[in-house]
Design a protein around this nucleic acid. Structure first.
Lengths: 145, 145
DNA sequence: CTGTGTGCAAATGGTTTGCAAAAAC
DNA sequence: GTTTTTGCAAACCATTTGCACACAG
């Protein structure tokens, strides 16, 4: 048997520490989530997980994705399309998003200077930063022509 | 008669240009909106406008706030409390928000360097910026102690 | 008058919840 | 066997829409 993926180890540990059970459904959802990159909606994940077990319901996806977020494996992102999406957090650098208002595609980017300035600006206002989100809206390369 | 406020002039012009009518309800909503600063929900505005005319319904607030946004007088902000809020845009400098995860209060801030870096980072990725939103989550001065 | 604006109630759509049955331990 | 988890359906809640009536131009 191959060693469990680090994400699975993190999740298992999280479940144990919180007195939660390690169920087959939760593990299938984790499997599907780590096997697919991107900004995935509950519907996306549900469709994908159903290939492994067609009896898994929407509700369980909602509840499990919340657990994965708490466990630090997933991050909720709001791309402005009216539904919560989830992206990988484990071993993924923090980043922000540029969202094309024409085609809806989103580009991930990271800028260390912006990050540093945010911290500095916050500290100056007496604010202790926990997290932040930056979305830039505009036209992507293909749509601006 | 005092001259109409600049906001009223902008809105009137917007309505004319788009073949829309200048109704009493729309003007009352604009009055209420420009008379109160802050991040106001539909419910806030509705409660306030009803003091002037108790027959104005929720629906009209929704529809009119959308018009005010289109006219460039209001901006939708998402403070993560599950409802759309509106803030003034006319003669208000662009700014971003720090949101306290403890008390929910939000602080407005502006940092020219961050703005410039965003534009530069976008341009480098072939992105033409139209707008952007930055929310920093953390603990405000009163809550961090 | 003619056509737009409005209020009400009902519909919508993503998300949450109550509860009995199923699964984990 | 006891307790947690799950699926289903119903509830929720902010927002939108259909429609008959009210109002602006």
């Amino acid at each position: 048997m191959p060693p469990a993926s680090p994400e699975k180890q993190v999740f298992t540990k999280y479940l144990e520490e919180n007195g939660l059970r390690q169920t087959r459904h939760r593990m299938l959802i984790l499997d599907s989530f780590i096997a697919n990159e991107g900004h995935r909606s509950i519907e996306d994940i549900h469709d994908n997980v159903r290939k492994a077990d067609s009896r898994i319901g929407y509700t369980t996806i909602y509840r499990t994705m919340k657990l994965l977020s708490d466990a630090g494996l997933a991050r909720e992102v709001d791309l402005g399309d009216g539904m919560t999406r989830y992206e990988h957090l484990y071993n993924h650098k923090h980043h922000d998003h540029m969202i094309c208002t024409e085609c809806g595609r989103s580009i991930e980017f990271f800028n260390a200077q912006i990050e540093a300035l945010q911290d500095a600006a916050s500290e100056k206002l007496g604010f202790r930063v926990q997290d932040h989100r930056l979305q830039i809206y505009g036209l992507c390369g293909s749509c601006r022509s």
